[in-house]
Amino acid sequence: MNRSTPPSTRKPSSPTGLRQRRRGNWRRTIALDGMVLPALILTIIFAYIPMVGIVIAFQDFKPWLGFGQSNWVGLDHFQYLFSTPENLQVVWNTLIIASMKLVGGLIAPLVFALLLNEIRLSAFKRSVQTLVYLPHFLSWVILGGILLDMLSMKGLVNQVLVALFNIDPIFFLGDGNWFRFVVVVSDIWKEFGFGAIIFLASLAGINPALYEAAEVDGAGRWQQTLAITIPSLIPIMIVVGTLSLGNILNAGFDQIFNLYNGLVYDKGDIIDTFVYRVGLVDGQFGFSAAVGLFKSVVGFVLIVAAYRMAYKFANYRIF
């Protein structure tokens, strides 16, 4: 059977009909549109109008001169960002840490949700779920202090490692490579429980009839997972993955800021901590705005690209 219906048969036959239907739609939805209006106005005021401030990325911005009087410097700030090796290193650190977090932050909650889904004892399942998402609500200021103690040379982690493997204590927070590892793992540990909620919700939404049919066909748990559960989760994985791509240059300011130190600057300093020091501490608003703009543009491009790819290859529309 030819699935493509000729377009003309689906569209209203005359322009008048089209107009009528549009007017009808408009009447029906006016109340709903009205409800969106406050949110729309707020978004315009607080998200779009301030975007005008982007101009300071191209200025030697002085607060007391304002946008109008500050000198224009063109692309100088961007040139400085990309011409000094120290600054490029910061961009690289951000990319490396953020992409490790992104991948880990997608896989860990997924695996955890799948495992938790297999548990039949609902009291146990619920309490585990609550316990693992609690760390999400802890601030990095507190966790930073806890990690500093836990990971110290005489801390709990090193005591266990030394006792088990008879190795020298590891200087987790003072060695650049270990530092990245700690940052990524602790972030995943903190957030995987919270990330799992969305997967658990979509697991609950899978039609049980599919599993029943599979059982009749003689499929085991493993086969059911591969053939039903995972394919059903792909759309939500794409959504989560796409949205987090926008954060590819957000490596987590509060975490790094609370954990880093002079010994790990070369591997641990990220764009956000850099902007904090240059922009807020040193008051270089123009330069920090330029870095922020660069971050936003990269995030925006990636989201658009991921969205298109999801549509093209997985035939899935997020928005």
Binding site: Y80, T84, E86, N87, N261, G262, L263, Y265, D266, D269, F274, R277, V278, V281, D282, G283, Q284, F287
Partner: peptide, 23 residues
């Protein structure tokens, strides 16, 4: 007040200094 070069290069120098001193 912070000088011109302090503003533009200060953070980089500060970072360099901390890194080397620590190491």
């Amino acid at each position: 007040a912070p000088t011109k070069t302090m503003l533009s290069k200060g953070d980089m120098l500060d970072k360099l200094e901390k890194e080397v001193i620590n190491k």
